[in-house]
């Protein structure tokens, strides 16, 4: 193989290796990109993780929105978890508080994180929570039970198509991870 061909090959390989490294990085860049896209589009029903201000809205008395609440446990999270209200009808712009109940079934401390999820996903950005047990991890002493309020409003600019909003909470067991930290 002559020298100029060797050089040509080497240069091409260099470029292609750079592309490979770039694409490996691109895979990781998709992570923040995805979060930005979710924020912008309300994709996938990702909810805010910080409390919203309790700003007064003009209540839309004409429309009625059906709110459904679901609770579930991930894998073997050792809690009893339920909602005290399974369903309620509200007007957009109106503030409501609903209570959730959770109980530690074990004789050990349990640290758990509740993750909300909306269906349909796009309504997440019209659903403001001013108070929620999901904003931070919950610590349960052995056998402890808690009533946990969630205060929310559905913003009046919610598109007319949506008549029912389902909000589901899943408790994940974070005990192991938080003991290590």
């Amino acid at each position: 193989m002559d020298e100029s061909l060797k050089q040509k090959n080497a240069r091409l390989v260099q470029i292609l290796v750079l592309v490979v490294i770039g694409m490996f990085g691109f895979g990781f860049a998709l992570v923040p990109l995805y979060d930005v896209l979710c924020d912008l589009t309300g994709l996938n029903g990702k909810a805010e993780t910080v409390a919203a201000e309790e700003t007064p809205y003009k209540v839309d008395m004409v429309r009625e929105i059906n709110i459904e609440l679901l609770t579930s446990l991930n894998e073997a999270t050792p809690l009893i978890f339920r909602t005290e209200t399974k369903q309620l009808k509200i007007h957009p712009g109106e503030y409501h508080t609903v209570n959730f109940y959770a109980e530690n079934k074990t004789d050990k401390v349990v640290v758990a994180q509740a993750i909300p999820s909306f269906s349909p996903g796009v309504v997440a950005k019209y659903f403001n929570k001013v108070e929620c047990f999901c904003f931070k991890q919950q610590t349960f002493k052995p056998g402890e039970s808690k009533v946990m309020p969630m205060r929310f409003v559905v913003k009046p600019d919610l598109p007319k198509d949506f008549k029912t909003i389902t909000l589901s909470y899943t408790f994940f067991d974070n005990t192991k991870a938080s003991v290590q930290n």
Partner: peptide
């Protein structure tokens, strides 16, 4: 060349989620 590195990245994230406390795909984190 364009997509194999992306797959390698995805499985690497699985690995760190499992063993190094990252939360790329873990809803709890």
């Amino acid at each position: 060349v364009a997509v194999m590195p992306v797959f390698a990245g995805a499985v690497t994230m699985l690995l760190t989620d499992k063993f190094f406390e990252t939360s790329f795909f873990d809803a709890a984190g």
